[in-house]
Nucleic acid binder design. Sequence first.
DNA 1: ATTCTAACA
DNA 2: TGTTAGAA
Length: 167
Amino acid sequence: MNSAKKNIENILNTDRFMFRIGELSQMTGVSARQLRYWEKKGYIQSEAREDGQRARVYSFKSFVKVSLIKEFLDQGFTLPAAVDKMTEQGKRMSELHQLYHNAYHGLGFYEDQLWVNMGYFDDEKTKILLAHVGDDDDVHYRVMPEEEVAEKLEKIGPETLPGPPMP
DNA sequence: ATTCTAACA
DNA sequence: TGTTAGAA
């Protein structure tokens, strides 16, 4: 796989993100004391770690949960109520996540544009639906035979997208 | 330097 | 819940 695609997909891959308690605290505005307390109450959880370290690490999912709880607390809900609301929201979010996960089948360049491969367009599974956001912020679609997609969209050079500078 | 737990002038 | 202490 080419590096431009890897760069973009790494940005999209939230599973790699791990936060320490101080980081999560700053990100969410929730004190470290609260985070430990919420965990003891079972509202959130930190990741189990294989190494012998005790310092908590949090996943991106925990970040989302904490952010939601914080939001509801700021709206005036009690902590248990805020947690209930977070759980409810989380269900909707995972549904949305499934939706976009089903719709996302990779990225590629074509005609000097970055396209999202949205999977098969037809029930016969011969054509692919592509989408890209133009300079006008409108989404443009294109249907293309699968073979053509394989030919043209996989030919992405690393120079097409500037990556982060190498230290 | 950061995080841990336990405790509270 | 905040804020400490002393340890890791």
